[in-house]
Design a binder for these strands. Sequence first.
DNA 1: TGGCGGTTCCA
DNA 2: GGAACCGCC
Length: 481
Amino acid sequence: MSETRAIIYWLRRDLRLADHPGLAAAAASGRPVVPVFIHDESVAALGAAPAFRLGLGLERFGATLGDMGSRLILRRGSAPAVLQALIAETGAGAVWWTREYTPQAITRDSALKTALQQAGIEARSFGGALLFEPWTVETGAGGFYKVYTPFWRAVSQREVSAPDPAPARVRPPEAWPGSEALSDWGLGAPMRRGAAVVATHQAPGEAAALERLDRFIATGIGQYDACRDLPAGDGTSTLSDALSLGEIGPRTLWHRAGEAAHKGAQGAETFLKQLVWRDFAYHLMYHTPHLLSENWRPGWEVFPWATDPADPGFVAWTRGRTGVPLVDAAMREMYVTGRMHNRARMIAASYLTKHLMVHWKLGMDWFADCLTDWDPAANAMGWQWVAGCGPDAAPYFRIFNPETQAKKFDPKGRYRNHWIAEGQAEPPRAALSYFDAVPRSWNLRPDASYPPPIMALDQGRRRALSAYASAFSQGSDGKLA
DNA sequence: TGGCGGTTCCA
DNA sequence: GGAACCGCC
């Protein structure tokens, strides 16, 4: 006798219908499906911007499910307790979900799987969040990759199964269990001032993400090589926030970019490499979870990072008042829009960890609070890469000079002028919006004068280099894994 | 997915 | 005098 009891489909960071193997399987089973999102500890730990963005995503995805006769049930609590209660209320016989790969999620989900199975409930997890499961990519010696280029070579020729189409129907249960109201969760309340800007810059939801992808494939990807490094332009896909919530799946991007590459689109290969960087970050996090919280390379404990959040350099950096225009523009863009251009991220991160010698974890935590596309694996990898203590890291002496970078990538100052009001007779609206978004306690005014550099660039560079030299003078040079 | 200061070599 | 290149940080 085949199973007919309902499936509880636990949604986490996979708020989409298409390219969603677990949901496709649940829909295809013909069994009733109870989609649920749980406001658990992991949601409570989100920073302001990602929480705000999650709220928008949940609203959209709930509406999408509603349009097809289903629902998104919202519950607050620890996942095992919530799921247990839902099983009791609905008589469901299964809990299915898409795998996540943070160490906390793996611990939580494997314990849950055991508990459910002991209770006679089917527990099933699916792929779909990544192109390649982390345990399926191995070096010739049977280890995991620590350098990107070999990782790329190992996976770039692989077959990636075609994305599942969106299910036409997800069978509802006979009776719906109760749901909490999204508005009661208060997601995004701290983003109230910047919120309107974020919402207008980036429409949430799967349909909007697919539209952005269509536009990017049609007109953007051909220019990607030439334009992706210009922070003032729109040369990037702007899909990172959707990707971080799973509003769009990586296989969809892989196949669409692959088709574009096949048609000879310049830049498609570069875009695919960027997409695979995301998988590489998850690969590293899976195999070495300390990537998230500690210097990935041993020996870096001795490096004299500043670790006090009250450090004046760190405070100036967070407030976009370092006196380095490209860095400040980047920090302000992020504070107002929840987004920061990729090249600007590298420059801002390099400036913080090298010129200001502030610990990458402080910078990463600030990003975690400010970025709507927040992704722990990608950010930990990126910050450690910039700081020099990460896998495949830039050698310690690779220090971005914000002025040189500005000459190369913002030659006319468009990006800097777009975000920095001080000193402009008629500042653009975006630059002014920063002063509406920041807390009053920061005491910033657009008509104040722009600050002089808090640290001379050549002095900061030399200080960082000599700190590295003395920290690693004993032979443990921090460059070896 | 660097920057810097040096040298060479040509205008 | 400056682009191009190189070795080192």
